[in-house]
Amino acid sequence: MNDPLVIGGRTLESRLFLGTGKFPANAMIPEVIRRSGAQVVTVALRRVDFEAQEENILNYIDRKNCILMPNTSGARNAAEAVKIARIARAAGCGNWVKIEVINDNRYLLPDNYETIKATEILAGEGFVVLPYMSPDLAAARALVEAGAAAVMPLGSPIGSNRGLKMKEMIRILIEEIELPVIVDAGLGRPSHAAEAMEMGAAAVLVNTAIATAEDPPGMAEAFSLAVRAGRLSYLAGSPEVSRYARASSPLTGFLRD
């Protein structure tokens, strides 16, 4: 299928973006990436905990085949997000960044206002900025103005596996926003991902549902297939929904006049 997604000047064949948190073992990640087909992979920057023997996740990601997308998790305002993005780029992680500014510890909902401010600064510095956002049309328009490369509305709260609870708001963004709309967060089943793609999302970003499955590589492949199925369905044009039955076989039988 020749249906590439172009973001920040890069052409992507895969519309499944992969998060790398919460996997039971880092050693599993190469196989998960392979079976997901993902070409964009998120990572996070943290202080080293010298007692925890933390491994550098980059040892498990083949950067020849993947674009790294550091996130700014831990940032509570635009200035902190900008600082994290600059460090990641200076440390050799490339110029893609997922802006994530969160002040709310219970639902981990993004702060759209601070996200817009960070996007404007970083886009001005040449970053390819993909902001994680609450699906709000005015905020999405402001992100377009600020120079975002895509917008990434949440389907439902991070790690909740609740699916596409924000569906109607995301549908509005897909209709109204010229940039790719990538559904990020909350997709807990491959069917949720297919649903997002069927309604015209450009891509989805999945982490928890794959990382915490009993068989993460298997679930990665399931998501990959669901994303492709949803995309094909969108391109094929879903027929309209009807309240009443519409016969699929001729009703003019031969048993009666």
Binding site: T42, V43, R47, P70
Partner: peptide, 10 residues
Amino acid sequence: LQILVMLGGG
């Protein structure tokens, strides 16, 4: 001085 590492994240 900050000593940082890239970890898994979504």
